[in-house]
Nucleic acid binder design. Structure first.
Length: 825
RNA sequence: GCCUGAGUGGUGGAAUAGGUAGACACAAGGGACUUAAAAUCCCUUGGGGCAUGUCCCCGUACCGGUUCGACUCCGGUCUCAGGCACCA
């Protein structure tokens, strides 16, 4: 151990030691309890940012702590290596996406290693590797066989700058999740995963994911958007077809006076054809569909519509209802058609007022009489049915059920459940992604690539076009293949898969990254999965976390995996903030982890990330705070330096009060740190506890330790404990201190310290004395003092007596060992 | 508008089961060491008061309630952040 703390030397020494000893390599061992800790793998953008560092520091503490607790800990790392930045770099710098990606992985791996994380690097994987996506293609084909993959033409979200289609989950407030540009609607054919088939299960399991933050579950529940109601068929004028609607208010059916269709609905043009309305409908539909998202859905967007010229019939009243096209009806939700009940729906009310459509009140509030002429807004609350035939006088809650049942009995609809979630569109018109293993044959249609031909390797021997267009469709040698079924000339699918597909199952593959007999080794996955602790940013609350849950359920139903859910516990860490804003290049407030590690060492960076705030909150980056972390490490270093060569006298068996006090603080700290890590992941308070302990130990002078062997012994024990308790947070310096204090290297192999309750007990404790709830003094009393004695001692306190004297003691509340409250009056 | 969080010193944050509010750290101020500076160490540090104390009053966004006792529980209000947002 050098005299002065030199992080660079210490860190190099221990990183080499860990690597040489293969300290973090793990294998399946059924005699040991497994623990799977995982941080969301990074996109290899080229450099690590503070968000990554924070994420991985949190995971590393958990991993190292669990290792010391004796678990067989798997802690893997890899690369979410497909994606558009690689293509953008190709356009900008003329580098091949594969070359760019590999170079970035190399660089980021080096940066990660420099931070000393406890990864089992033998399990590293990159999703752009054919041996990875090969199994993804294989799974695609199994899902296809199960009917979980299908192809359809639909209106999709298209991002112009990214030149590709986006899934609903990837559109945030009408804009592309990646580049922020408003998406446009486009009709396009593509591949879909049938996530809707699992909507109910995904929702139900939200209640069982007790280890997940409530807000993530809420976001998922909202996204799935289950609502109960009824489907109702409204026959068209011609009598042989009908418009189906979904409504949550079947109780208001008698008040449905017209019908509204989404502009995207094919019936709009169909129904108006040949009527006098044909032209205005076409104009209206064209106008709305070419509007951008903001103009259509923004606050100031007005509700407008056009009559189609056609009518349908209210199935219960027989009323002839005009069919309108309305800009506020969503094609994506329900059936894209809405029965309009202007008296009891605010949008329908405004629409009816604007266009002079009929308003019929069918729900009357208690003790009030609504009439269409005097209403200024829709009545949406509870009430009693009127104008509703046989249902008049029924409460509307009851009527919902009754009317649904009547519809079902008459085959005009019936109760149903509707979900907001749509199927996951996975086709991307991009190059740098996993090829979809399909061949399009003019005769046989979309034909799966046979398993034995997998992987369908993404050709890398290409010139990447400056236009940004995917080179795949122009790659004749690759595209033109015989149909696997009829052998006639056919064309390969040139869309690639959404990169969220790769990240939906990578955690399974970590259990057996080199397995080549199947997608996963059931044995290994059965042992390691599910992930016990998953850690990452909240930004994936819906996207990645929902898709991964879906994949786990699919794999389970394919009998490949046993778990119902991928992640038992989820921790969503906050952002890294500097000067009040998220770190970003445009704000110019980014801090480069590399530079910091160079200046202070990895341990200081790690310590600051963990100490500045609890993981789920945002972390405010300050240069002064980093300095503080560095100072603390130096203090600990110097403290150990001061005492390390101290010889410990043999145990005398009796301890002075001084030695007992050192033991007490030591064991109290073990307790605090253990509980803070184990129960709450509150590393900031865990570190604070060690700081307090260190502050206490610094008060022990060398002279004092020289003279009292029992103090020296307690002090040496304490210093070893400090090193042990710090080791998950700042592993390099901890190893160095531990070694200097005579410990064996490789601290993740030593057991985590256990506190001895016997050392925590004190003979005398501090009891706060309150009079009428206000603190008036404190007294010392034996730990097991009876209430009477405590009360007597308290009353003897001058300051307490001042408030009690001359008054009657009405009540005394004594919380043993804590507080005595005297109520006087 | 709806949902979910969160509001505590100059700052980041602590108070785990209702029991001393402000642990730990940063910043600031003062002191020691030094020719000097840096580094290090020590002291002070929520606001106010005076009688300077084991002192008093106020104080955890705001108003009210429960309780011997509330940052903590309950009701209401406000603000901020995030998510969803014409969802029929």
């Amino acid at each position: 151990m050098e005299k002065r703390y030199n992080p660079e030397a210490v860190e190099r020494k221990w990183q080499e030691f860990w690597e040489r000893e293969k300290l973090f390599k793990v294998e399946v061992d059924r005699s040991l309890q497994k623990y799977y800790v995982l941080e969301m793998f990074p996109y290899p953008s080229g450099s690590l940012h503070m968000g990554h560092v924070r994420n991985y520091c949190i995971g590393d503490v958990v991993a190292r702590f669990k290792m010391m607790r004796g678990y067989n800990v798997i802690h893997p790392m890899g690369w979410d290596a497909f994606g558009m930045p690689a293509e953008n770099a190709a356009i900008k710098h003329g580098v091949h996406p594969a070359v760019w990606t590999m170079r970035n992985i190399r660089e980021m791996r080096r940066q990660l290693k420099r931070l000393g994380y406890s990864y089992d690097w033998d399990r590293e994987l990159a999703t752009c590797h054919p041996e990875y996506y090969r199994w993804e293609q294989w799974l695609f084909l199994r899902m296809m066989e199960k009917g979980l993959v299908y192809r359809k033409k639909s209106i999709v979200n298209y991002c112009e700058p990214c030149r590709t289609v986006l899934a609903n989950e990837q559109v945030e407030a009408g804009a592309c999740w990646r580049c922020g540009t408003s998406v446009v609607q486009r009709e396009q054919e593509g591949w879909f995963f049938k996530i809707t088939q699992y909507a109910q299960e995904l929702l139900d399991w939200c209640d069982k994911l007790t280890g997940w933050p409530e807000r993530v579950l809420t976001m998922q529940r909202n996204w799935i958007g289950r609502s109960e109601g009824a489907r109702i068929l409204f026959p068209l004028g011609n009598g042989d077809s009908a418009i189906e609607v979904f409504t949550t208010r079947p109780d208001t059916l008698y008040g449905a006076t017209f019908m509204s269709l989404a502009p995207e609905h094919p019936l709009c043009l169909e129904l108006s054809r040949g009527t006098s309305q044909e032209e205005s409908v076409r104009d209206f539909v064209n106008r709305v569909l070419t509007q951008d998202w903001d103009a259509r859905t923004g606050e100031e967007a007005e509700k407008e519509g056009v009559f189609t010229g056609a009518y349908c019939v209210n199935p219960l009243t027989g009323r002839k209802m005009p069919i309108w096209v309305a800009n506020f009806v969503l094609y994506d939700y329900g059936t894209g058609a809405v029965m309009a009940v202007p008296a009891h729906d605010q949008r329908d009310f405004e629409f009816a007022k604007k266009y002079g459509l009929d308003i019929v009140v069918v729900i009357q509030p208690d003790g009030e009489k609504l009439s269409p002429e005097t209403m200024t807004e829709a009545y949406v609350e509870q009430g009693i049915l009127v104008n509703s035939g046989e249902f008049d006088g029924t409460g509307n809650a009851e009527a919902m059920k009754a009317i649904s049942e009547k519809l079902a009995a008459e085959r005009k609809g019936g109760p149903t459940v509707n979900y907001r979630i749509r199927d996951w569109g996975i086709s991307r018109q991009r190059y740098w992604g996993a090829p979809i293993p399909i061949v399009h044959c003019p005769d046989c249609g979309a034909v799966p690539t046979p398993d034995e031909d997998l992987p369908v390797v993404l050709p890398t021997d290409i010139e990447f076009p400056q236009s940004g267009r995917s080179p795949l469709p122009d790659l004749d040698w690759w595209v033109n293949v015989p149909c696997p079924r009829c052998k006639k000339p056919a064309r390969r699918e040139t869309d690639t898969m959404d990169t969220f597909v790769e990240s939906s199952w990578y955690f399974d593959r970590y259990a057996c990254p080199r397995y080549d007999k199947g997608i996963i080794d059931k044995e290994a996955v059965g042992y390691w999965l599910p992930v016990d602790q998953y850690i990452g940013g909240i930004e994936h609350a819906i996207l990645h976390l929902l898709y991964s849950r879906f994949f786990t359920k699919v794999l389970r139903d394919l009998k490949i995996k046993e778990s119902d859910e991928p992640f038992t516990n989820l921790l969503t860490q906050g952002m890294v903030i500097k000067d009040g804003a998220k770190m970003s290049k445009s704000k110019g407030n980014v801090v480069d982890p590399e530079e910091l590690v160079g200046r202070y060492g990895a341990d200081t960076v790690r310590l600051f990330c963990l100490f500045a705030s609890p993981p789920e909150r945002d972390l405010d980056w300050t240069a002064e705070g980093v300095e503080g972390a560095y100072r603390f490490l130096n203090r600990v270093w110097n403290l150990v330096q001061q005492h390390k060569d101290r010889k410990i006298a043999p145990d005398e068996g009796s301890y002075s009060e001084r030695a007992r006090a050192i033991r007490r603080v030591t064991h109290r700290t073990i307790k605090r740190v253990s509980e803070d890590i184990e129960n709450r992941f509150h590393f900031n308070t865990a570190i604070a506890a060690v700081m307090e302990m260190t502050n206490e130990l610094m008060k022990v002078t060398s002279q004092e330790a020289d003279q009292a062997p029992d103090v020296a012994e307690a002090l040496m024990e304490a210093l070893r404990i400090v090193a042990a308790l710090l080791s998950p947070f700042v592993p390099h310096i901890a190893e160095e201190l531990w070694e200097a204090l005579g410990g064996d290297p490789g601290m993740v192999r030593i057991p985590w310290p256990v506190f001895d309750p016997a050392f925590l007990t004190e003979d005398e404790i501090l009891i706060v004395v309150q009079v009428n709830g206000k603190k008036r003094g404190e007294i010392r009393a034996p730990v097991d003092a009876a209430e009477d004695l405590v009360r007597e001692t308290a009353l003897a306190e001058p300051n307490v007596r001042k408030y009690v004297e001359g008054k009657t003691l009405r009540k005394a509340v004594y919380v043993p060992g804590r507080i005595l409250n005297l109520v006087v009056g």
